[in-house]
Design a binder for these strands. Structure first.
Lengths: 253, 253
DNA sequence: CCAAAAGTGTTGTAGATACACCCATGC
DNA sequence: GCATGGGTGTATCTACAACACTTTTGG
């Protein structure tokens, strides 16, 4: 325990020296598994309180690089699709006293800085490729389904809501391919779109529109081991999909 | 001149004390006049170099409030519609040596900070309501047409390009009413949409769609003093327009 | 053989496109 | 009266929504 106190103190001292004050990054890592959108959360050591992964920006590091570094440490992924979506810059973002109490850290974080401006990023990652890893301050890193999130620390419930709202609005411009494995079935892709948009889509019309857009290649294989009729496996066409994303030309009104 | 040197030094000293380091705000103020989109630019004292209006965030001030304060000083407007659109956070955003030389300031800005992360905001304002005012470091504040921008200081040409791209993409969700006077004609509104979207729209279909959306009230007056047929004057329906903006339901595919 | 999901056709309708035409006004 | 832009009507076509039906597979 004394060791822990010492390393936490050391961590914040080091961050204070090499990182930019008043500024932090919070990352909403979106994954997709069993028909649900998931986000990666961390549980703070010795508590049952959860928060988003985040961190600070080194003085000579680009903001995007900082977000990549933070998520690499949390997920083990080398390549990560990231999108900045909002600046959370209110002078008072949450009840600080209450938060410090819930975290119960040995160091007084209120001295770290009076307020923090947070740059919100969301990531789209392939659920199965992630190996969640907690950091120094946390002892668990797990996927949570969007529908049953706990009451998070800081203003992180709001950050997730804003991230989802942004993802929804900009869906035609976002490479959702990152949320799926190399090959996947058409119903899986439809489920993904339905979950993000929050409303059902007509299967027939979805098939037609997706096929007309040309973003998919149908493989000769079918998904085995499932009950009922085995669906074809598709992959994104790397010669077509990026262009469709850039133009934002695949949308579901 | 000695007075100027002194006040500039004082300005930066004060900012260094009361503002957040490494962080700044840059504002792209969009106006619409004579069928063209304009942006507000400042000319640095004793030079012919232009840049966007910008400033710093006070330690206990919300980021949005800082942007409002900065623009209030530059435009004289009390109410300003603002939208954050991007974080410019590369470790090296522009050639610093070249820039300091072009600005030719008495103080060495390179000591102010090694790098700056800039929060990009754009504003939609009513051209005629703005009284452009330069600040301490500049001796002119003027509207420039988007088509013939000069080579700006810092990475401000890129910032404007990104702002416009964001405005374009999110047009259905943005209250363009702020870009127009209280009353305006249908062709003027069409010109605005065409200019932002960068492509012509069919007048008949534009009329039909706008009228069907219900966002406009037609007044009994017509614009006088114009050559040719005098067009009706419209105003935005405050009971309908905000809802249409929130839903993003008025778009031109 | 039955239940459940995958995959394909068809049709009516709403909205977009592409026109054509008349109206009002200044010169 | 003529050039120019404002304002309205309509035919055509495309794209979407809403269906029904067949196919495949595990139990």
């Amino acid at each position: 325990m004394k060791d822990f106190n010492h390393s936490v103190t050391h961590y914040f001292k080091q961050e204070a020296e090499q990182s930019i004050h008043y500024l932090s990054i919070d990352c909403v890592v979106f994954g997709f598994h069993e028909g649900r959108i998931r986000v990666l959360l961390l549980r703070w050591k010795g508590t049952s309180e959860w928060s988003l992964p985040g961190g600070f920006i080194r003085k000579a590091e680009s903001v995007d690089a900082a977000a990549v570094r933070i998520l690499r440490e949390r997920t083990g992924l080398q390549q990560i699709f990231l999108q900045q979506f909002h600046i959370f810059g209110d002078a008072v973002r949450y009840n600080q006293e209450d938060t410090w109490q819930r975290i119960g850290l040995p160091v007084d974080l209120s001295k770290w800085s009076e307020r923090t401006i947070s740059l919100g990023y969301y990531a789209l990652v392939e659920y199965a490729e992630v190996t969640p890893r907690p950091d120094l301050l946390t002892d668990a890193c797990d996927w949570w389904s969007l529908e049953d999130l706990p009451n998070l620390l800081f203003d992180h419930n709001r950050i997730i809501a804003v991230a989802l709202e942004n993802l929804r609005r900009q869906l035609p411009y976002q490479p959702v391919s990152h949320l799926l494995p190399e090959t996947f079935t058409m119903p899986e892709l439809q489920r993904l779109y339905e979950t993000i948009l929050g409303r059902p889509l007509d299967a027939r019309n979805f098939y037609k529109k997706v096929q007309a857009s040309g973003i998919l290649q149908r493989t000769d294989e079918r998904r085995k081991g499932t009950p009922y009729k085995s669906p074809y496996l598709y992959r994104f066409d790397p010669g077509v999909y990026p262009e469709v994303v850039r133009e934002g030309s695949l949308s579901f009104p």
